[in-house]
């Protein structure tokens, strides 16, 4: 394979695709956390053994999260097109992909956050209560603060999952590496393009995972 010729022909396309994929993933991870953290916190503290037990609230939130989690992304993507148009005015391109990505990832994030918060030992919550901390202070200063390393590890998992989802979104007109792999690699039998997109995705995933691991380890003050 002639690399120079290959990159002359596809370099700009691949660079744009990579950039689009990164933008889609970063923004949707960000928005998914904006929605998912409060949702995960609420699910945790409204549980029967939680800080602020509330059966009805807990059940309803649980349902919402489970419904969100059970719809396969590719179906959600097309099913909520009217909603996507309503929010960002289009169902195409990067903005069109971010809406379904966020809708799909927020419940996933909520579960990840819930899992991180549940790792916090109950005696820490009790200790904070014994010092007169309010529910809000306990959420902020104990639950979230103490689970930062675990939340960071969770975030890298979410981020990598969204890479995969973003590729799927590519197939319905979102652009990005998924779109390139399908259009060139699959529909035009250009295996070399397919392979290069896969390599780019692998490299991106490795970088994100490494950053996540190192950050989590740096932030974790236990076991040293």
């Amino acid at each position: 394979m002639d690399f120079n010729a290959f990159f002359a022909q596809y370099g700009a396309l691949l660079a744009q695709g990579t950039w689009d994929t990164i933008v889609m993933t970063v923004l949707s991870t960000l928005f998914a956390y904006v929605l998912g953290i409060p949702l995960g916190v609420l699910v945790t503290i409204t549980a029967d053994d939680g800080l602020w037990p509330h059966k009805a609230c807990n059940r309803i939130l649980g349902w919402i999260v489970n419904i969100g989690r059970s719809i396969p992304f590719i179906i959600l993507l097309v099913a909520i097109i009217p909603f996507t148009r309503f929010v960002v005015g289009t169902s195409l391109g990067v903005p069109g992909a971010i809406v379904p990505l966020v809708v799909s990832a927020a419940p996933f994030v909520a579960r990840m956050v819930e899992q991180s918060l549940r790792e916090i030992d109950g005696s820490l919550i009790e200790a904070a209560q014994s010092m007169g901390a309010s529910t809000w202070q306990i959420v902020w200063k104990v639950y979230l603060k103490e689970s930062v390393p675990s939340l960071v590890r969770g975030a890298s998992i979410v981020f990598i999952t969204l890479f995969g989802y973003a590729a799927m979104a590519g197939t319905v007109g979102a652009g990005g590496l998924g779109d390139i792999a399908i259009r060139y690699g699959y529909q035009r039998y250009q295996t070399d393009v397919m392979i290069v997109t896969i390599i780019i995705l692998i490299v991106l995933v490795q970088i994100v995972q490494s950053i996540g691991d190192v950050t989590a380890r740096k932030l974790d003050k236990r076991n040293r």
Binding site: D121, S123, L124, E126, A127, Q129, S130, M131, G132, A133, S134, V142, K145, E146, V148, P149, L219, D220, K221, R222
Partner: peptide, 22 residues
């Protein structure tokens, strides 16, 4: 009232219950 009451009552625990990230 409850939070103020607790301010006046310190508590220590079997497994110390310190905040690991502080």
């Amino acid at each position: 009232q409850l939070l103020d009451l607790r301010k006046n009552i310190g508590m220590i625990f079997q497994h110390f219950s310190l905040f690991a990230q502080r």
